[in-house]
Each structure stands twice: as structure tokens, then as C-alpha cells.
Nucleic acid binder design. Sequence first.
DNA 1: GGGCTGAATTGATCTGAATCAATGTCTTTT
DNA 2: AAAAGACATTGATTCAGATCAATTCAGCCC
Lengths: 251, 251
Amino acid sequence: MSDQTTCQRDARPRRLILAGAHRQPGYCLSCGIRAQSVCSVIDDDDIARLAETAVETLVLPGRSFIEEGAPATDFYNITSGNVKLFKALPDGRRQITGFATTGHFLGLAVSDLYAFGAEAIDTVRLCRFSRARMRLLMDDFPRLERRLLAEASNELVAAQNQMLLLGRKTARERVASFLLERVREVPNPSEDVPLPMTRSDMADYLGLTIETVSRTLSWMRTERLVTIGKGHTVRITAMERLHALAAGEAG
Amino acid sequence: MSDQTTCQRDARPRRLILAGAHRQPGYCLSCGIRAQSVCSVIDDDDIARLAETAVETLVLPGRSFIEEGAPATDFYNITSGNVKLFKALPDGRRQITGFATTGHFLGLAVSDLYAFGAEAIDTVRLCRFSRARMRLLMDDFPRLERRLLAEASNELVAAQNQMLLLGRKTARERVASFLLERVREVPNPSEDVPLPMTRSDMADYLGLTIETVSRTLSWMRTERLVTIGKGHTVRITAMERLHALAAGEAG
DNA sequence: GGGCTGAATTGATCTGAATCAATGTCTTTT
DNA sequence: AAAAGACATTGATTCAGATCAATTCAGCCC
């Protein structure tokens, strides 16, 4: 299903840090590779014990590495790249429940089956743990558990926002909300915002069709809210108006 | 905003248990009142220290006790009754993001503001903690943190299901999914299912209008999928077909 | 029981987004 | 640089569910 290599950890002792959303550089907890970092600093003696069973996995664009409904054996931490998470209906209708990028944890499930599928948008590197191992890690490092709780809380807030979007917002409000969500991924809000996903992904994330997404972006261009660049980027040219639109304040 | 009394804890020592979803009887961690229980058994010596600042609050039907966007000062554990959680847009459009009942924790937020509002459907009893206190509790009782992580994971799965529903399901599929969700609240699936919320609440939960909810329930009655009882109850008469409908397998 | 009030149902019409249908534009391959 | 294939845009038409508009029903409180 995906290309996969065992973790290559060099012998030199070093501080081991969980890859995460805070964006300080560090080393992956499971395999010791350099990554965006976060969270919990753990001393060198822990490394040997922790790194034994971990694997680093490389996933090519379009490949899925979590299958909805499959036994939830593993737990993932994304080291680089972009991932889409989704649920599907038997006739092919699909809802993307979120996009995940460097630092995100995936596969946290109470059930024995994955509740969603995950597919690489671009080339993705990730660290894979067994769930049993994750349980041990949590016992040894309470800060990891706290970190996961904080991440789950944040995702819950995001999910609630998305429910408001899907249940009650118009197509224009949905696309505006989406663009503002993506702007938060770049340091400077007036620079180009990358949209690594296809129109089809956007549509499945926003509960729309590709045609409606396309039409809405075209409308935003004629309204001088955004300029649409080459190669999957947009630039926001009227931040205030876009915010008002996303918040449901405009007609 | 709500009637409120300080906790009345009696002096007799006893084991203290967190109110929760597992439905074993026990005593509330914060105030010592008898409640549906779960999770973590804590020894008697802890009680005095823990129960000092806790209050039990009684919330009347229709009253809200969490205001969306207000400073997130407190943390709640529902002791009895039904609550709706929602987000709203400035023009009054509303999305109910979930219903909570006995045992649920509310107000877990990383942000300093509540991301959603909460309102009592019927008479609700709940235990209130300050967030600072909650933090101390989590330091002292790691099992509490684990419990909260498990609850957050479950809610995340529910939220993903709801996103699929709101983004991609038809009105009939939505109502069918909702009814099946409510059936899980009663021990025997062939008995009457209580629907304590109004049609308006159902509509705002399902991303529909009250008229569509009503029409769809009427259609289900004529199709012999359900019988609609007096006083906010339904009984499911064709479980298989309803399941197929909810899963998107039917026309 | 009889009026009162908010909730629920049912009907007629409208509309935003879906669907169906070309056409246009990038990207990759050779 | 040309061809192929995937992705994106734009246009015409349809339709599921919203909106507007009456009734009808279920609790209540005397």
C-alpha cells in the first residue's frame, strides 16, 4: 500500500523531541529523524528503548495509508507533507473531515477500527507506532498524553466549526471560511496561500461540488476578494470583506 | 443565568467516583453527590481537598449555562438531564453540534473562550469546576486525564460522522441516522425512543428545516419505518431498512 | 371541559446548488 | 514541441430542500 523503510537512527546521542505543530525543529520521538518539533523533551537513555520498533514510512501522493473500517493497529505522527482524512458512503459520496500536516497525530481511536481513511496529497513522511507501544509511551510520558488531549481538544473545536459550516453556511461563506483557514498556515497573510489539494478535495471538504467551488472562486475573483495564482495558490486581496463573508455577516 | 447551590456533601467518608457515561452508580468527584459513575476511584482522604470549591448547579429547561465566545472559566460534568451544544452565526442561523447527557464533560477548551454555547433541554444538574482546579485534578489523577482523552476521541469520531451526515447525506438519510443514534441511548432497540428535543433542535442538529424534519418523519411513518408516539417518542419498526437508509444504501 | 399558546404538520411555490454538458487549460510524457 | 490525460472553468437545466403560508394538534391553566 505504501513504500516503507525501517527507521534509520544514527548512534550519536541527542535530545529526542516529538514532531509536532509548534514548529521548533527537533527529533522524532519514535525514530529519531529530524523533524518539526513540539512537546516533550526526553533524555538520551530513553532513546534506545523507544526507537526499537518504530518505522519511518514514505507515502507517495494519492496513496492511502489508513483504510476506513480496517483494524486500528497503528498510530501515526506526520513528519512532513499533507494528508487528507475522509469518510465515504457505499455509493462513493465522500466527506473529507480534515487536512493534516507536519506534526499531526493520526489514528487515535477508542474503537478497534479506524473511523476514517487517510490519503497522501503530496509526498508524506510519517512515523508509525503500534497502538500497544503508544499506550506504553503514554504511561511513561504523561506529557505525551497531555499533548494528545490538547490536540484532540483543538480538533474538536475545528470539527464544531466545520459542522456549522456544513450545516448552515452558503457556498460563498464556505469557500471564504476555507480560504481563511488556509491563510493561517502561512506566516504572512498577504502572501500566496498554497492550496495543495484539488478542487475535488475542496468540494468534498466543504460539502459542495467541484463546479460550485470553481464558480465561487471565479466570483471571488470578479469581486476582487482574491487573485488566483498558478500552481494551486491564492492571494487574499480583501481580508476584511472575506472575514465578514466567512462569518456570515454579508449578503 | 441559572439557579445554583453550593455543594452539599455529607460528612460520612465514602469512595468518590467521577460521574460518567459507564452508568455504574457512584459519587461525583467534585461535590460528592450520588450520580451515574465512571472511571477513577479515589480514596477518602482526597475528598476534603477536592470538594472545597465545587458547586452543584441546577439549570432549568431552556436556560443556557455556557455562552459561546465568553471567557472559558469553568468546566462541567453533567450529573443528570439533557443538554444541547451549539454554535451560531450573527444572523441567527444555528448549528447544534451535539447533545450531551449524564456523565459528559463540557468546557474542555485550549482557547480562553468557549467555542460553543450550551443550553438545558430539560432540567439539568451539573457539577462545576474552575479550569485551574481541573488542571490540578489532572495532575493528581492521571486516570482523569486518560478518561478525558478517551471522551475527546469518542467525540471526535462522532463529529466526523456528523460531518459526513451534514456534508453528503440526504434529508432522509440524516433523519434515519439521527434516529439510530438516539436508539443507542435506550437498552432495548424495539422500545420507545425518547426525543427530548424539539423539531427545531433536530433541524438545527441535522442541517435541515423543521418542515423538512417533519415531512421526513411523516414519510417514514407512511413507509412503516417508524411509529410516532405521543410526548416526544418514536418507535422503530423496520430496523434493517432504517439502517440501510442511514448508511446511504437505499434510494 | 374550553379556550389559549407554542409546536408540529401539511401544502404551494421558489431558489441555491446539483447535475448534465461542453470547452478550456495546465502538466507530463515522449 | 506535440500529444495525451487530468484537472478546471463556464453554461444550461433540473431538483431537493428552503421558504412562505395555512391549518391542526398537544399541552396547559383555569
